[in-house]
């Protein structure tokens, strides 16, 4: 599978570390990180990742506000976004889906299965790594 570049936007550094490990280890993807919505938007504009994993609950600019800002920007609008959230209710998942994101992944997740989950959500060919 072609190498992907994934942007993780999460203010929790331990989640960034685990995501980076899981995606690099199981799929060989490059992972870039941002700790806030604003930083994430800048990195998305600069690096144009193949997809964005976006935490919902962040201080200052939360995930949904970040997603809206990404959608308003011509450079980032086309990048698929998957929300990461600890909210597990099906109704909440539906609410997030209604916003237009490509998918929702519920925390906690297994980092070793994350690449597979992303592939499933985005209909990417399965990682061969």
């Amino acid at each position: 599978m072609t190498e992907k570049c994934i942007l993780i936007i999460d203010d929790d550094e331990s989640i960034q570390t685990v995501v980076e490990f899981g995606l690099k280890m199981t799929a060989g993807w490059e992972v870039i990180s941002a700790s806030s919505g604003n930083e994430g938007i800048s990195r998305a504009q600069a690096d144009h990742p193949d997809m964005i994993l976006l935490d919902v609950m962040m201080p200052e600019m939360d995930g949904l506000a970040t997603f809206r800002a990404l959608q308003l920007n011509d450079q980032t609008r086309s990048i698929p976004v998957i929300l990461l959230t600890a909210k597990a209710q099906a109704s909440e998942k539906r609410l997030f889906n209604d916003t237009g994101v490509s998918g929702v992944i519920i925390k906690p997740f297994n980092a070793l299965e994350l690449a597979e989950q992303i592939c499933n959500v985005l209909n990417w060919a399965e990682s061969s790594n």
Partner: peptide, 15 residues
């Protein structure tokens, strides 16, 4: 609330 919410994700990720 945000701190508790973040803990849910973090602690769960560590099992």
């Amino acid at each position: 609330y945000r701190a508790a919410h973040t803990l849910v994700g973090t602690l769960g990720t560590f099992g």
